[in-house]
């Protein structure tokens, strides 16, 4: 079987996460920012799955009936559940915002101060 260093997945994940952050920082469109947050979440998911697999492979060498790493994958599943709920509410808020200020520009959000 092919040996694949975990570092590659770490670097992929860090790169995706950073791109997400740059997106959050540079864009003013609330929907794009939201999408970038999803991107960051997915970067974390990839990393979690990779670690789960690494953990499992290490344990498998000792015991072929092991279930080590299952929890991490379930954790990813729950992250997706929460993300889906979050997106629902988040988009509802954005729609609401658009209805009020007729824009999805976060720079206009400072009106909340007043």
């Amino acid at each position: 079987m092919q040996v694949m260093p975990i570092n590659y997945y770490i670097f992929l994940s860090v790169a995706l996460f950073t791109i997400g952050i740059v997106g959050v920082l540079t864009r003013r469109n609330a929907i794009i920012i939201f999408m970038c947050i999803e991107l960051m979440l997915n970067a974390v998911n990839v990393l979690l799955v990779a670690f789960s697999k690494m953990h499992h492979v290490a344990a498998f060498a000792l015991d072929s009936s092991t279930t080590a790493g299952t929890e991490a994958q379930l954790f990813v599943f729950f992250i997706m559940v929460v993300a889906a709920a979050e997106v629902t509410v988040g988009l509802a808020i954005i729609v609401m915002l658009y209805r009020n200020i007729h824009a999805v520009d976060i720079n206009f959000l400072n009106r909340l101060k007043h």
Partner: peptide, 21 residues
Amino acid sequence: FISSVHGEGSIGLIKNLGKVL
């Protein structure tokens, strides 16, 4: 460290995860 990521294991299968879930 270099660690194997690709390899044996069936924890990601729907059957196994569903059982635990």
